[in-house]
């Protein structure tokens, strides 16, 4: 099984706007596209409300009868599994009538654990094993993280990690390029969490856009990597624009001062900055086993992005893993 590495594709690129990608037949076509492009699994993104049928277990049940029913739908599209669920606690929940939750607020802890438990509880049935989380808000939206704050955050994710572990699901902290954990805070948080239940989600595109070489992260924290996302970066935030307030809108969506039309794309895109063969090799060397979820993030043409990514995986990355493994065995 490719040295324990399985390939998935993230669904988020199919939903550019809130009223897109709501109908069942669209989901079916997207899942079939992911399947035929050579992927085994699909990663879901947390969402809320009736126009997010794939957003959370309640919506899955409302649309497919039950989580099991959704699992059948996925397998009917010839995919093996939902690899993982991406969840940013700052997203509100219409189902629970809650607003944004914060890992820094102790009062939110019970709700955070409960929500994580719910998402993680659905994953095993869908063949999935990772809850990917946004560990802290964006750097521009919070005070710099001091020892206290980091302590609270670490306690929160440890609690979440213990809860998801009950379902056999790993909790993986996903550091994006706007994160308050960008640069040196990463070790600060990771070192405070329990390696048994909390790992790192390595996102090649986010790290690269944040000016961090994914290879250095692999060499430093290879044993803590619990999940991998492969997307390419087309630009680097060199001017530290991530420190601005509302950077999600002003930098990520609008492209910041340089008006970057698009930060991210599928691996291997024209102008992409990530060296995927090198990252793949490093992951194998670090003994990584688990999902690699390929993404384009947004895309002007979702099916094309999935197929182009599939091309790279089939023709380059998967064979490379075989070769590395053979070399290791020999």
């Amino acid at each position: 099984m490719n040295g324990g590495i399985r390939w998935g594709y993230a669904i988020n690129q199919w939903k550019p706007q809130f009223d897109d990608f709501v109908r069942r037949e669209q989901h079916e076509r997207a899942l079939k596209t992911i399947s035929i492009a050579g992927f085994e699994g699909v990663e879901l993104t947390y969402g809320t409300g009736r126009w997010e049928p794939l957003g959370n277990p309640q919506q899955l049940a409302a649309n497919f009868g039950s989580v099991t029913g959704f699992g059948e739908f996925v397998r009917g599209c010839a995919l093996d599994a939902v690899s993982s669920w991406y969840w940013d606690p700052a997203e509100r929940s219409m189902e629970h009538l809650t607003g944004p939750l914060s890992p820094m607020a102790e009062d939110d802890l019970p709700a955070m654990v409960e929500r994580a438990r719910e998402l993680a509880g659905a994953l095993p049935e869908l063949g999935g094993s990772v809850l990917v989380v946004r560990p802290v808000p964006g750097a521009g939206d919070v005070e710099p993280l001091g020892d206290d704050a980091l302590g609270r955050v670490a306690a929160c994710w440890d609690a979440v990690g213990r809860a998801t572990a009950e379902h056999g699901v790993r909790t993986a902290l996903h550091v994006d390029f706007l994160s308050a954990l960008r640069r040196d805070h990463v070790p600060a948080l990771l070192d405070r969490t329990d390696p048994a239940v909390v790992g790192l989600a390595l996102d090649t595109g986010e790290l690269t856009a944040g000016g961090i070489d994914p290879l250095t992260v692999i060499s430093a924290y290879g044993d803590r990597i619990a999940h991998v996302q492969f997307k390419d970066a087309l630009a680097v935030d060199e001017a530290e624009e991530y420190l601005q307030p509302h950077a999600h809108w002003t930098v990520r969506v609008r492209g910041g001062a340089r008006e970057i039309p698009r930060w991210f794309a599928e691996p291997g895109a024209d102008g992409g900055l990530v060296d995927f063969p090198a990252v793949t090799r490093a992951l194998v060397e670090a003994g990584y086993s688990g999902w690699i979820v390929v993404e384009s993030d947004q895309s002007p043409h979702p099916a094309a992005s999935a197929l182009l990514a599939g091309y790279l995986v089939q023709r380059e990355l998967r064979p490379l893993i075989e070769t590395e493994k053979e070399a290791a065995d020999a």
Partner: peptide, 15 residues
């Protein structure tokens, strides 16, 4: 309103 942007469809509040 929607129009096509370089990373997919956007609404007018995009920028």
């Amino acid at each position: 309103w929607r129009s096509n942007g370089p990373s997919g469809p956007v609404d007018q509040w995009h920028s």
